[in-house]
Computed example of a mutant assay.
Amino acid sequence: MITQVSTGRLQALSSDVYRQKSELTGGIPRTYAPGETIYDYEDDTPRLLFLVSGWAVSSKVLPNGTRIVIEFALRGDMISTPSVELARETVQALSQVTVMEFPDFTSHTSMDVSPRLYRLVLTEMMRRQARMSERLANIGRRDALERTGHLLLELATRLGPSRLRPNFDGFECPLTQADIGDAVGLSTVHINRVLRDMRVGGLLSFRNGIVEFLDRHKLTELVDFDETYFMPHMI
């Protein structure tokens, strides 16, 4: 059974969280070009990064050279570099990215931290844990179409309605088929086939960097997408 929450409520929750992040003071803005490394796990400077704009990817490379995408970071998301370091992940910009950088107080308990920043960090840790649990279920128990559709629905819901195209059911997506494949454990050839099947089946279209949902409701039912798992209440 799919738990449904109104789009308006999800959008309101997301906007409120982002507003609280944007009101934080004391951060240092930094920008990164597409393909540039934002953080490498061998970096010895712990910090907390909030994405102001753009797309980033957190991934790790196995000894045989295979890349695994752990997470796509979007506007408003937090990147905790101590967690990235512990997991031996590397964070790279997929598009032009702006982040707000704060010192990592989780490794220095003596630091004077504002209650607002503390609550936001705890909430973001909860959000990421929820997404990771769902990602594990996605790869371990869903077929190729379900994995891919679920990922694209998650990204769409996290991004919210397009501000540039209000009546458009979709989003601009800088991901390549290789990026999607590395996130759901499928080859590029397999992803190409799945995207074609979804287009022919009237579910969604992914062309020229644009994902358009042709029948979002049908796709949501088909992949058993529950949009509430990444929207915990603020602490």
Score class of each variant (00 low, 15 high):
I2H: 11
T3K: 11
R9L: 13
Q11F: 14
A12P: 06
V17A: 13
Y18S: 04
E23R: 11
L24W: 00
I28L: 13
P29R: 11
P29M: 01
G35A: 04
E36F: 07
T37C: 12
D40S: 11
Y41G: 08
D44I: 06
T45K: 15
P46H: 05
P46G: 07
P46M: 07
R47G: 15
L49N: 02
L51E: 01
L51I: 06
L51N: 03
S58Y: 06
S59E: 15
S59I: 01
K60D: 13
K60E: 10
E71A: 15
P82R: 07
P82N: 07
V84Y: 02
E85L: 12
A87Y: 15
R88F: 05
E89Y: 09
E89P: 07
V91R: 04
A93R: 03
T98A: 07
V99T: 03
F102R: 02
T106E: 13
S107R: 15
T109D: 15
V113I: 02
V113S: 11
P115G: 09
V121W: 02
T123D: 14
M126V: 11
I139W: 10
L145V: 11
E146H: 09
R147Y: 00
H150S: 09
L155V: 06
L159N: 03
L159E: 04
G160R: 03
R163A: 12
R165I: 14
N167R: 15
Q177F: 15
A178I: 09
D179S: 03
I180Y: 03
I180D: 00
G181K: 00
G181I: 00
G181T: 00
D182P: 10
L186F: 06
T188L: 06
V189C: 06
H190M: 02
H190A: 11
R193M: 03
V194I: 05
V194S: 01
R196K: 10
R196Q: 08
M198G: 05
R199A: 08
V200C: 12
G201C: 07
L204M: 00
G209T: 00
I210W: 13
D215N: 08
K218R: 14
T220V: 02
T220E: 07
L222F: 04
V223W: 00
D224R: 13
F225H: 00
F225W: 04
P232A: 05
P232V: 02
I235N: 06
